[in-house]
Amino acid sequence: MTLAESRGIKRPPEHEADARQAGGRAHPGPLEYTRIGLILAVITAVEVGAFYMDIAQWALVSILVVLSAVKFSLVVMWFMHLRFDSRLFSGLLVGGLMLAAALFVVVLSTLGGGLT
């Protein structure tokens, strides 16, 4: 839809606007949501399980960081609809995360302290 056209329309049909935001696809339904929820539950169980296993610290840290990153991505991509909505939103979140990570990696490395 061009700008001029969109300006001409006073109020878009509501339900269509709900489902399809600009630059986005339709949101998934309850079935997919529940499936993602199950995966999240399983990953959490694996995380806690790994915590009690007798493995090297570096391995544990890597497993936990990867698993929580997967959980994080599942929630933001499916529940927060980043997979489906405007890419501007993804850019904002990823931009914020990367900025925070970059800044504080430098601060922590000059001041000492960190993950291990």
Binding site: A100, V107, G112
Partner: peptide
């Protein structure tokens, strides 16, 4: 997006 910096700062202090 701006909240990521808020929690980033708090988590950084914890890790430090």
């Amino acid at each position: 997006a701006s909240e990521t910096l808020l929690f980033g700062s708090l988590i950084a202090a914890y890790l430090l």
